[in-house]
């Protein structure tokens, strides 16, 4: 079993479009969409829904006003500034509540209950080149790292059962908890970057995360022709830091047209220059140990 994660630091560099292309090349894959805040790959692959599971993203404190005496014990103890006295009524902000349970434990009147947030779901099924797992975080729900862990363990289980050896993880942007959850213990990491000063900044920040976890990265420069000077700088930086450059891709409007037709660029037209280039990159990533 090989787990390959595709991440970027900066959003919108082309992670999902490139992951979709990887997922439709020669070998079958278990495709796991780990960008649970903004899952998109199901739009292209329209997987069958064979199983869904409820994901409890956390808990929210709720006051039983028939018991509350406005004693302020909870207000004094809450570290998240989530409880306040508004017009002589103790009010908990659902958005600020971290779900730590402390208020419910210390309330002398037992007036605070904890309600699970259970609107998020994890789905799994089949798509045209293998199996697919994806999480969808309900609007406003949180703790996406935990949902990423759930998606990944499901993908591993499916890989074991189906005999499909390659697991491809399409990661979220940023460097925080859902990204760390996507990266821990994977075999290979692909960083999709773009030649902009923010793309480079974010690639370097995400590289520091990889170093912390002792992970090896392959860099793909997407839309390299939008700024060839900066693309050259990325290459130079990779060379200086001993990071493998897996390849570079031109800006190509066909990527968007393919997406609109619900296809990966490979399915849309395997003979395009960009499709051939992606094929080469994927082979390189699979072959390198």
């Amino acid at each position: 079993m090989t787990e390959i994660a595709v991440i970027s630091g900066k959003g919108g560099t082309g992670k999902s479009s490139i992951s979709a292309a990887f997922a439709t090349l020669n070998c079958k894959v278990v495709l796991a969409d780990c960008d649970v805040d903004a899952a998109n790959l199901y739009l292209i692959f329209n997987p069958s829904n064979e199983e869904d599971e409820i994901y409890i993203s956390g808990y929210k404190a709720v006051i039983d006003y028939s018991k509350c005496t406005n004693c302020r014990s909870c207000i004094n103890q809450c570290r998240f500034d989530a409880i306040s006295l508004i017009n002589d009524k103790t009010v908990i902000s659902e958005l600020a509540c971290d779900g730590c349970f402390l208020c419910s434990r210390i309330c002398p009147e037992n007036a605070i209950g904890m309600v699970p947030s259970n609107k998020s779901r994890m789905y799994s099924g089949s798509f045209r080149n293998g199996k697919m797992v994806y999480g969808r975080l309900a609007p406003g729900e949180e703790n996406s790292g935990k949902l990423v862990n759930m998606v990944r363990s499901k993908a591993k289980k499916i890989s074991g059962e189906s005999g499909i050896e390659t697991i491809l993880l399409d990661g979220p942007p940023g460097i925080g908890c859902p990204v760390i959850s996507t990266l821990t213990g994977v075999n290979k990491v692909v960083i999709v970057t773009e030649p902009s000063f923010s793309g480079i900044n974010d690639m370097q920040r995400v590289m520091e995360v990889l170093r912390k976890f002792n992970l090896r990265a392959f860099i793909v420069i997407n839309k390299y022709d939008l700024n060839v000077t900066l693309s050259a700088r990325i290459k130079e930086w990779c060379g200086q830091n001993g990071i493998e450059l897996a390849g570079q891709l031109p800006f190509d409007k066909n990527m968007v047209d393919a997406m609109i037709q619900g296809k990966s660029i490979i399915e849309y037209n395997p003979d395009l220059k960009i499709s051939k280039e992606i094929h080469k990159i994927w082979c390189k990533i699979l072959k390198t140990d």
Binding site: G11, D37, A38, L95, L137, P139, G140, E141, E142, N143, S144, P172, P173, G174, G176
Partner: peptide, 11 residues
């Protein structure tokens, strides 16, 4: 704002 729709976005 940061991307996404979870905690950092809501904050």
């Amino acid at each position: 704002a940061p991307p996404g729709t979870s905690c950092p976005f809501i904050q």
